[in-house]
């Protein structure tokens, strides 16, 4: 049952990701990305990482993707953009990087498959997670908060309207 669900969800995730990277319209790509993220969230649930699954849905598919939506709205990509994207997506352009990436995938597959097999599925509860997070990983939490703060300041600075074009040139 679980295994079936796993394969199904994996197929959805791969399909959504492939669709996402090939979409010409950014909004369509974004919707496929959300689908991909949600399916990965389901996978987390299947793997017994319930807390991670919840975070994946709330923060990734929710909060972060909303940011993308805002930005896409602000940039107002129209039909011309879509035409240009089509012109950019010629086989001559994507065949090389794809082969390179496939080479990398082949190598990783070899490494993973030669590593032997093992079962997963031990459930890690939110309480366990919290005890470890605020125990040995306290410093990492602090660092993450600093990183978020830096990201906040950076995003605020870069997004300021005062930095209009020509302000520095």
């Amino acid at each position: 049952m679980t295994l079936t669900l796993f394969y199904l969800t994996s197929a959805v995730a791969v399909f959504a990701t492939v669709m996402m990277i090939t979409r010409l319209n950014a909004v369509h790509g974004l919707l496929y990305l959300i689908l991909s993220l949600l399916s990965v969230g389901v996978l987390f649930f299947l793997l017994g990482a319930h807390f991670a699954a919840v975070l994946e849905v709330i923060i990734y598919a929710g909060a972060i993707m909303v940011l993308f939506v805002f930005v896409i709205m602000m940039l107002n990509q129209g039909q011309t953009t879509i035409d240009r994207e089509r012109a950019w997506l010629q086989p001559a352009i994507w065949i090389g990087p794809s082969l390179l990436a496939l080479l990398l995938f082949g190598e990783m597959a070899v490494v993973i498959l030669f590593g032997g097999s093992a079962e997963t599925g031990s459930v890690v509860t939110a309480k366990q997670l919290g005890m470890v997070l605020y125990g040995p990983y306290l410093l990492a939490v602090e660092l993450a908060s600093m990183l978020l703060l830096a990201g906040l300041v950076g995003a605020y600075h870069l997004g300021k309207p005062a930095l209009k074009s020509g302000a520095r040139s």
Binding site: M1, T2, L3, F6, S10, A13, V14, T17, V18, M20, I21, A26, S36, V40, L43, L46, L47, G48, F68, V71, I72, L75, T81, E85, W88, L89, I93, W94, P97, S98, L100, A101, L102, L104, F105, M108, A109, I112, L113, G115, G116, S117, A118, E119, T120, G121
Partner: peptide
């Protein structure tokens, strides 16, 4: 529940490579 670890990792690798292809191929910053 019996999900084999190597299959989970393979899925992870596949998603990673797809994302990488996206980074390498697309020219649109978004």
């Amino acid at each position: 529940n019996g999900i084999p670890m190597e299959q989970g990792l393979l899925l992870s690798a596949m998603l990673f490579v797809l994302g990488l292809i996206g980074v390498l191929v697309r020219r649109n910053l978004i």
